[in-house]
Write a protein that binds this DNA or RNA. Structure first.
Lengths: 121, 121
DNA sequence: TAAGTTGTTCGCGAATCGCGAATATACGAT
DNA sequence: ATCGTATATTCGCGATTCGCGAACAACTTA
């Protein structure tokens, strides 16, 4: 499992084996063993690899399906794919899809008004 | 690191060693070794332990500080503490605090109208 | 061709694992 | 107090796995 994840991520980053080996202070052959499945990285190495690849250990170990860190630093409210997994609430009551659409329209109008009518600056 | 996390979580759940050992199909002494730091669990065991404790491997390995699974199923928009770590965008442009407050007010008004004026059903 | 980079595999010594056994501790029930 | 049971901790053993360098293949570039 982890071997697949590692080779997939490294190819995406287009890094050579040696680069990762240097970052973790291990031999090239050692890391190569991780990708080939010949060896398993130590827990500490897994942690460092997740950090290096900017993903989670859950993804590396196959406990998560998405490589994205669940930081949710930014949530694009018009991205319905993402919203399918999130439930927004106000005062504890969930927003309907309709609520959300109206909110989006509301903000768009607000922005429109700000940009065409008033020009603070 | 992981030993601390394991014993902390197990104590919180008030589970005996044997119970966990049974769940993972390993010897009691094997799991005891994990908690004492005498041994390290395999990657597969880490994955299963995270599942058993309903937490993330990131937390077990010390790559995350919170034991909570990052599911974020629900986001309460009036909870400013949570919102401090999230940036919402519409059409790629981030919402200001003002935008958010108006959106919340907007929804509250909408709900008010729905409940006092119109009664479908 | 020669030199360099990258990826793969192998064997060796060393380190670690998983297990059962032995021991220690806690706590009711008799 | 004395069992009996459940729980926790540590140890040694055999087996497994690790990390490393070495060796090699494939490929690019000079």
């Amino acid at each position: 499992m982890i071997s697949k994840r590692l080779s997939e991520l490294r190819k995406k980053k287009k890094w050579p084996l040696q680069y990762i080996a240097d970052q973790l202070n291990i031999a090239k052959s050692t890391y190569a063993g991780y990708e080939s499945g010949y060896r398993q990285p130590s827990l500490e190495a897994v942690k460092e690899l997740a950090q290096l690849f900017e993903t989670s250990t859950d993804y590396l170990l196959g406990a998560a399906d998405s490589p994205e860190k669940p930081d949710f630093h930014t949530i694009e409210l018009t991205e319905t794919a993402m919203l399918a997994h999130i439930c927004f609430t106000i005062d504890g009551k969930p927003l309907t899809a309709d609520d959300l659409n109206q909110m989006i329209a509301f903000i768009r109008v607000k922005r429109e008004m700000d940009s065409t009518q008033t020009h603070h600056q």
